[in-house]
Design a protein around this nucleic acid. Sequence first.
DNA 1: ACGTTATTTCAATAGATCTCGATATATGGA
DNA 2: TCCATATATCGAGATCTATTGAAATAACGT
Lengths: 123, 123
Amino acid sequence: MVERLSALAQPTRLGVFRMLMRAGLNGLPAGAIAATAGVPGNTMSTHLAILSRAGLVSARRQSRSIIYTANLDTIRDVLSFLVEDCCGGHPEICAPLIKIADNTCCPPQTKHKPQPKPKRRAT
Amino acid sequence: MVERLSALAQPTRLGVFRMLMRAGLNGLPAGAIAATAGVPGNTMSTHLAILSRAGLVSARRQSRSIIYTANLDTIRDVLSFLVEDCCGGHPEICAPLIKIADNTCCPPQTKHKPQPKPKRRAT
DNA sequence: ACGTTATTTCAATAGATCTCGATATATGGA
DNA sequence: TCCATATATCGAGATCTATTGAAATAACGT
């Protein structure tokens, strides 16, 4: 589990992981990922290997390209692990956590990204 | 966000975070946390400072002890960030993620939610 | 004030990680 | 086969992280 969190705890890799989450089942080839992230191919290859070793992404070859896809089951395990037993007999405490899936992951219909709420006035 | 994930990507700190998630609103004093984890006080203090700077835990003084508590809002943001836009128009793909809160965080046998969930069709 | 307990901060070292040039491997086409 | 494309692996230097002894700070009791 630490390996999985470590894999995500790096700016380039976190960006790649989210890119692949959005890309869905189709995934993306290594070259496109590197180009989008603005990182040399060999550097990205190292990062992808780390994500892959952590089980967060899967790779398949398609002709000359290697297509990477996010592994939903693994990320589910990571999230579950973090909130495991958090309620300790007081489910109401965890109410904020329960809304994650419905509000963020699979927003009802038109809603997509959570809009940044204006907390303070811009100066 | 990388700072938050980095804070969790270390065995001692991940253990402490989960310990505090289970401890709930009462939290635990630094000394007890260090003793339970089997780590010297100053080492644990460093780890707690990292979790605190990342916003994952909060600290309050109570007499001579410093009581640490997990910050549920922050961990919710972390989880949301990871699964953001994961569905890309195909909510069924994310079905595994939707079950996290209900199955792991607040298991059904102790379930007692403040408001019902008249939401999507479950399978 | 003094001593005791609880925790933090400082400083130094050991170890791990990030990046990228050079090189190697794999695929497809002529 | 030879060449071009796509990606992976190696190696080394720079940077970051983890740990802990020693010293500092904070609160309480006497």
